[in-house]
Design a protein around this nucleic acid. Structure first.
Lengths: 243, 243
DNA sequence: CGCCAGGTTGATTTCGCTCAAGCAATGTGG
DNA sequence: CCACATTGCTTGAGCGAAATCAACCTGGCG
C-alpha cells in the first residue's frame, strides 16, 4: 500500500506515448519538461479508488495504462457508471476547472498506471500555452456531444438494444479477433455496472444475456464473451431503415 | 422574410446586457468593438429555424431575447428536444469548434433576437484573448456536468417525476408569481416537445397531466399552467430520505 | 367547408421492475 | 478444516408503468 504512493519509473512525459494523441500534444518542449517534473505517476490495483465523490479537486489525472470507471451516485444511493477512462484520457478536469469538489468518483477496474498533475501546474500550463485550453475545449465539446447523443439514445432504445450497443463498444476496446473470425473479450465490468450504464437493473441484464444466448447472438461464461458473427450484432442494432 | 436578413438596431455588443453575464465578459474594449462590428443581429419569428442539422457551421449564435429550442433527430426520425436556449446563451459552438457540420438544429420558439458571429471573428477573438477560450471551457464543462446529471436522472426517475422536474425548471424561467402565492406560466413547448425531453410519448404526458390535475398539483389549460402550492411540486420531487 | 396538427382518452399488450429464492465462488473466524 | 457469511449472478412469479393502436375532439386555415 504505502510504497505505491511513490512516483514510479516510466512516469516521464517526454517519452509518454499517450501524450502524442491527447490534449497535451500542443505543449512545447520546455513545457513538457515542466509537466514531467510536476507530474506524479503511480500504480493502482484493481478496485482502488483514484478520487472520490465529495472530496476537493487537487488536480487532474492522466491514464497511462488500464481502465478506469467514473461513477456518480444517483438519488437513491446507487452508483451509476457514467464513463470509462482509457490510456490517454484525462480525468477530473471538471472539478478542477470549476474549482469545485468532485461530483463523481474514479476507480481503477484493473491494474493501472495513472499520472497526477496538480492544480497549480495545470494552471501554469494553461496560462503559458493558450493552445492547451483550446485543446481541452475541443475535448470537452466532444464529450458533451457524446453525452447528448447518449441522452437521446437512452430515451428511445430498448434495454436490449442499449446493451448491444454497450457490448459493441466494449468489444472494440477489450475484444480480440480469433482466427475463425469470431470475437472474444474479457468483460471489464460486473453485470451491475453494465446495468447502471444502460439505466436498468442487473436482473434485467441477466435476462437479456440469456436471450442473447438463446438467439445465438453471443455466448457468456462469467466475464468471458464470445460473439460468433460480429456483424450479427451490427445487423440487429442498425435496424431502422427510414423511407 | 427578406428584410429580416438585415442587421437590426440594438445589435450593438458594447451595450448588450447579456454580455456582462456570459463568456464574452472577459473581452477588452477594443475586442468588444471588434465583436460589435463582426456580429450580425436579426429577429426571428416563432418557429423560424436558426440553423439546421447537417448544414456547415458558419459561426456561433448569441441569444439576445426569446427562447430557442435545440433538437436532435433520433434514430427513428423523431425530433428530440435536448436543450433550451435563453438570453445570454451562446449556441452552436460545438460544430464551430470541431469544424463539423451541425448535428442539432435550433428553432426560435417565439419572437427572438439572435446575434450571429462568424467563424473567422470567433477564431480571431479566441486567438487575441486566451481568457475567452477558458471561459468557454468552463461553460462547456458546466454543460457536460449537467448532461451527465440528466443522464443519471433519466435512468432512475419515473416519467411523472421527470415531468415535475421539467415543470419546475420551466416555471423558474417562464412563470410569474401571482399575489396569492400561486404561480402561473405560459408553456413555451408543445406536449410532444415536453414528451421528447423526458424520453416518453405525448400520450403519456397527457395522462401525467390528467393525474396531476386529479391530484390537485396543477391545473392545465392549453399552454397555461397554474400551480397553487408551488412547494407541493418540490415536496413530491424531494422524496428520498436516505438512512 | 374539409383538412390537418395538436391534444385527450380508452383498450390492450408488452416490457421491465420488484420481490424472492437459489446457486457458485470466495472469504472468514473458530 | 469445516461452518457460515458475503458477494455476484441467475431465474421465476406477479405486477405496474408505459408503449401501442385507435378513436375522437378542438381550433386554425386554405
Amino acid at each position: 500500500m504505502v510504497e505505491q504512493r511513490r512516483s514510479i519509473p516510466g512516469g516521464d512525459c517526454t517519452e509518454c506515448r499517450m501524450r502524442q494523441s491527447n490534449e497535451w500534444q500542443v505543449l512545447r518542449e520546455e513545457e513538457v519538461n515542466f509537466l514531467a517534473r510536476s507530474q506524479k505517476c503511480r500504480s493502482y490495483h484493481a478496485g482502488e479508488v483514484v478520487f472520490a465523490e465529495g472530496e476537493p479537486s487537487y488536480g487532474i489525472y492522466c491514464v497511462k495504462s488500464g481502465t478506469v470507471a467514473i461513477r456518480k451516485i444517483d438519488n437513491i444511493g446507487n452508483p451509476v457508471l457514467v464513463q470509462l477512462g482509457y490510456p490517454g484520457d484525462t480525468l477530473g478536469y471538471r472539478g478542477l476547472l470549476l474549482g469545485e469538489n468532485r461530483n463523481s468518483s474514479a476507480e481503477a477496474l484493473g491494474p493501472s498506471k495513472i499520472c497526477f498533475i496538480d492544480k497549480q501546474a495545470v494552471n501554469t500550463l494553461l496560462d503559458k500555452n493558450p493552445a492547451l485550453g483550446l485543446q481541452f475545449l475541443r475535448r470537452v465539446t466532444t464529450d458533451l456531444d457524446n453525452a447528448y447523443t447518449k441522452l437521446v439514445e437512452n430515451a428511445t432504445f430498448s434495454n436490449r438494444t442499449k446493451f448491444l450497443h454497450l457490448l459493441l463498444v466494449l468489444m472494440n476496446r477489450h475484444g480480440r479477433m480469433t482466427n475463425d473470425g469470431s470475437r472474444v473479450m474479457q468483460l471489464p465490468l460486473s453485470r451491475r455496472d453494465m446495468a447502471s450504464m444502460i439505466g436498468t437493473r442487473h436482473e434485467t441484464v441477466s435476462r437479456i444475456i440469456s436471450r442473447l444466448e438463446e438467439d445465438g447472438i453471443a455466448r457468456f461464461s462469467g466475464r468471458t464473451v464470445h460473439v460468433k458473427q460480429p456483424h450479427s450484432l451490427l445487423e440487429e442494432i442498425r435496424p431502422v431503415v427510414l423511407e
